[in-house]
């Protein structure tokens, strides 16, 4: 088990390394940061000097090496645009994104698993079929469109909820939270739904499919033949068996909630890291882009690792030492 974890962490580091390499090789195609930084009035000498100063005259492999060297020491450099340390900027923006992702993730998980079970058990019911049909909307409509539709309905037409921003936030020193004010909570609702809806419908459809599959298994039949209560059959016997594939997908989906927050944050002008990244791309702010991409990959790799650990917790068959043969 421990050996497995260590091996996985080793693999994770390799993945991060490759992600960074690919990212760096692509930054040069995004544009030239020097253009933005020097403005219209500039000489060729200015450009050369700045390039050299930023290390942009070197091949990307060298740039990447320097970035790594600094990054392992926790130093992600200075933002080209703001002139402040990238780590500081990211930390400042992270609470907004994490709170949004947390609420959306919760919504997606609770709603997805709950509705998935419901539609599987009441497979032939009218409401279950209605939910399934509606879920097609969630799967097929693009996120930004859902966001815009929600803004149109609840902000413009009904005027119930704010259409942009984070509302009032409370500063806890190292963390700013919108959970503690009414306007902060109200501001969370629309972006959280926008961000979580796709994941929710995806999880719901997945749980439903898996659940239907499991409900056909012999051990479910046998449990019924032994007179086990429906509730116990559904939740104790069936649900647990659907969890392994569900956790795999759900874990990745939760990762992408944070990664794809970019779109939602843009639509709702949410002051999180996604919006920061979009602005960084426009300005070709390489240190910010690099740090953001590394952050997202660390998150994905971390979630994957947790998911693998969860398999062990759920499925006893995996706990057997592989050398024992596993019969």
């Amino acid at each position: 088990m421990l050996a497995y974890i260590i091996r996985r962490i080793g693999q994770s580091i390799l993945v991060l390394f490759v992600v960074g390499l690919v990212a760096f090789s692509m930054f040069r195609f995004v544009g030239d940061p020097v253009d933005n930084m020097l403005g219209q009035e500039r000489t060729q000498a200015d450009v050369e000097r700045l390039r050299e100063q930023l290390g942009l005259d070197q091949p990307f492999v060298v740039q990447y090496y320097k970035f790594l060297e600094q990054a392992v020491q926790g130093n992600f450099g200075l933002s080209y645009r703001q002139g402040r340390p990238v780590a500081e900027i990211l930390l400042e923006r992270a609470p907004a994104t994490l709170e949004l992702a947390f609420v959306s993730g919760l919504l997606a998980l609770a709603g997805g698993i709950g509705l998935g079970i419901y539609t599987a058990i009441r497979r032939r019911g009218i409401s279950a079929n209605a939910i399934m049909t509606l879920s097609l909307v969630g799967v097929s409509l693009p996120t930004f469109l859902i966001g815009i539709l929600l803004i149109y309905l609840f902000s413009v037409e009904l005027g119930w909820l704010p259409s942009f921003g984070r509302g009032e936030v409370v500063d806890l020193g190292w963390w700013t939270t919108g959970f503690l004010t009414v306007s902060g909570l109200k501001a969370l609702i629309l972006p959280a739904i926008t961000l979580g809806l796709y994941q929710m419908t995806l999880i719901m459809r997945l749980v439903r499919t898996e659940m239907l599959e499991v409900l056909r298994m012999d051990y479910i039949r046998f449990a019924r033949a032994r007179g086990i209560r429906e509730k116990s059959v559904n939740f104790r016997h069936a649900l647990k068996n659907t969890l392994v594939p569900v956790i795999t997908i759900t874990g990745l989906q939760l990762g992408s909630i944070i990664a794809f927050a970019i779109i939602t944050e843009t639509v709702f002008q949410w002051p999180g890291v996604g919006l920061l990244f979009i602005n960084a791309i426009q300005f070709v702010d390489i240190p910010v882009m690099a740090a953001y991409l590394m952050l997202i990959s660390v998150m994905f790799v971390g979630i994957n690792l947790i998911v693998d650990m969860l398999y062990f917790a759920i499925d006893p068959r995996l706990r057997v030492d592989r050398t024992a043969g596993g019969h």
């Binding site: 012999d218 051990y219 039949r221 033949a225 032994r226 007179g227 016997h237 647990k240 499925d315 006893p316």
Partner: peptide, 24 residues
């Protein structure tokens, strides 16, 4: 349901699949 298991029971063909793998 109250009759099943209590007054009549069933044994299935495949012992590999008739037990829930995740419960002892």
């Amino acid at each position: 349901r109250r009759l099943r298991g209590k007054r009549m029971a069933m044994i299935f063909q495949d012992p590999l699949t008739s037990l829930n793998p995740l419960l002892t």
